[in-house]
């Protein structure tokens, strides 16, 4: 069983990396990019039967810092 964890900065938390990417896109001549926010994708290969609670606990205890980040869990069959 696999799970993909998307970790993103909360709204209102400054994202200098996203800003730099935005700037670089503009430098390449791409117009119409309103904003860029960068995040992380963490792929977990899990033992079958790993509970949703356990995956959520992994996110809360380590994978995301909930002071500044949100996370979303996507289970892949």
């Amino acid at each position: 069983m696999k799970a993909r964890i998307f970790v993103t900065l909360k709204g209102g938390v400054l994202d200098p990396q996203g800003k730099a990417i935005h700037h670089a896109l503009e430098g390449l001549g791409f117009t119409g990019v309103n904003d860029v926010r960068a995040g992380k994708l963490i792929e977990l290969d899990l033992a079958d039967g790993t509970s949703d609670d356990d995956i959520d606990a992994m996110c809360r205890k380590l994978l995301a810092n909930t002071v500044i980040e949100n996370y979303r869990i996507e289970k892949v069959a």
Partner: peptide, 17 residues
């Protein structure tokens, strides 16, 4: 110390990058 919860808040990337 912030990551371990001994102090509140977090240290983000410098605003300048």
């Amino acid at each position: 110390l912030t990551e371990s919860g001994l102090l509140p808040g977090a240290l983000l990337r410098n605003a300048s990058g």
